[in-house]
Design a protein around this nucleic acid. Structure first.
Length: 277
DNA sequence: ATCGCCTCCTGCGCGC
DNA sequence: TGCGCGCAGGAGGCGA
């Protein structure tokens, strides 16, 4: 479900409710997620105060005195604040009781997400240590991407969706950024020019920023932590628009598969010069 | 080191 | 209306 803008939207939404709250209890109803929820999570996390809430890529980090709770939402995960004693909903796998008023609830139908605990530096955790730069950081720039692209023969779309290269760019925003940069998604990474990378990096930052402003994209059922849907789906230029006219040139949007993921492009705007297909 | 495919899971929409 | 199929916002892990 969530890409970086959706995760960021959730982070901002729950932050005021979790910061400096002490977790009085953790109820696990299903521990089989992508990885098993650690069986000692309750004993480790109980009575810990959440000092800080941050994000690394699509991983949410809840910092306490003794360690860090790491949450990833996978494809279908949701995290929201609900009134305590609220009835359990379907696929609600974990509930963190915050205080007399609220609890933090983790819902994830497909269970591709993860709830983990570490007592070391979370950034050195196995799953986080090799992540590429944050897309908004100065480390993510055209020169960096251009240098890396020299040793990659994958399609450019797969390059920017690779979290070891840059974190947080998922399928929706990869499609959208490539459209805005007028680059065909199937173009071999090492054939993209430095000039194109300048445009692409700028568009990635731009599209992610705009999506955060709009509280993310709601395609099926993504909801922000207050239950409201995001608003970016109205801005989508190519994603999910197969056979609909391009918003720029009226040419019909095409759909192909790249790396097992649906890929949308305008055959005219994203002019094919160095294409795989 | 990189790539390409598979996998984990449930739900939904489509075509027959 | 029911069924089977393929696809869905992710990404680690494997063998080649």
């Amino acid at each position: 479900m969530p890409e970086l803008p959706e995760v960021e939207t959730i982070l901002q939404g729950i932050k005021p409710f979790v910061i400096l709250q002490t977790i009085s209890n953790i109820d696990i109803y299903q521990n089989k997620l992508r990885w098993k929820i650690p069986s000692n999570l309750n004993s480790k996390l109980k009575n810990q105060t959440i000092l800080q809430l941050s994000r690394r890529g699509k991983y949410l980090l809840f910092t306490t005195q003794t360690g860090t709770l790491i949450i990833h939402l996978g494809m279908s995960g949701k995290l929201f604040i609900k009134p305590k004693q609220h009835a359990l909903q379907k696929h609600e796998h974990a509930v963190f009781t915050l205080n007399d008023e609220h609890s933090l609830s983790y819902v994830d139908p497909r269970r591709f997400g993860a709830i983990l605990w570490t007592e070391n530096d979370p950034l050195k955790h196995k799953l986080l240590k090799d992540l590429g730069p944050e897309p908004f950081s100065d480390d993510f720039n055209a020169e960096y991407l251009y240098e890396l692209s020299k040793r990659h023969k994958c399609p450019i779309k797969q390059l920017i969706m690779n979290s070891k290269i840059v974190t947080g760019v998922g399928n929706i925003y990869a499609n959208e950024a490539l459209f805005q940069a007028e680059i065909f998604p199937g173009s071999v990474a090492n054939t993209i020019t430095k000039k194109q990378f300048y445009t692409l990096v700028e568009k990635i930052k731009k599209v992610l920023k705009k999506a955060i402003e709009k509280n993310g994209t709601t395609i099926h059922d993504f909801a922000t932590s207050n239950g409201k849907p995001g608003d970016f789906q109205n801005e989508l230029k190519v994603y999910g628009r197969t056979n609909l006219p391009c918003k720029e040139c009226k040419t019909l949007i095409k759909e192909i598969r790249i790396g097992q993921r649906s890929t949308f492009y305008c055959p005219k705007c994203q002019f094919k010069t160095n294409d795989l297909y």
